[in-house]
């Protein structure tokens, strides 16, 4: 399953970061940050095909020796990044897409909280629980 999940705001500041226990958290943060380069390039109007303008899932952004990095961007320019092990070949593209959908839903519920101010880091037990369920595969 995923080793890291990041929610990144529209101004590219991280809102939420989950890293699987026992992983190199700093390195995964660096990777999530670098994923923004490719997201930015993928969603730039020049590169985007007009047909997939409603597709939020951006697919595999890039793969290093250890990790695969997948991206997703909501219509409000919130970027979701999921990192998996490069050796994990059991995860299909469709499953990743589903994970992003669920993550997006969880995010949407979290920001509906009237006491949450957009752009602030997400501190929400419910969101935390959703992410926990997501990464444990339930």
């Amino acid at each position: 399953m995923a080793v890291s999940i990041a929610v990144i705001g529209k101004d590219n500041a991280p809102l939420y970061m989950w890293v699987a226990p026992g992983r190199d958290e700093l390195n995964l943060q660096f990777l999530s940050h670098t994923a923004l380069d490719i997201i930015q390039e993928k969603v730039s109007p020049a590169n985007r095909a007009p047909t997939d303008s409603r597709e939020l899932y951006l697919g595999l952004l890039y793969a290093s020796e250890e990790y695969k990095i997948f991206g997703y961007m909501t219509n409000t320019k919130i970027k979701l990044v999921i990192i998996t092990d490069a050796s994990n070949t059991t995860l299909r593209d469709n499953e990743i897409r589903m994970m992003f959908r669920r993550l997006h839903n969880a995010y949407t519920s979290a920001v509906c909280n009237p006491f949450y101010s957009p752009g602030d880091p997400l501190i929400s037990k419910k969101f935390e629980a959703s992410v926990g369920a997501l990464v444990s595969g339930n």
Binding site: D11, N12, A13, P14, M17, E25, L26, Q29, F30, H33
Partner: peptide, 13 residues
């Protein structure tokens, strides 16, 4: 650059 994008964990390291 990390400061301007507010990646505090990266700023810290």
């Amino acid at each position: 650059q990390y400061r301007s994008e507010r990646w505090w964990a990266l700023v810290s390291s």
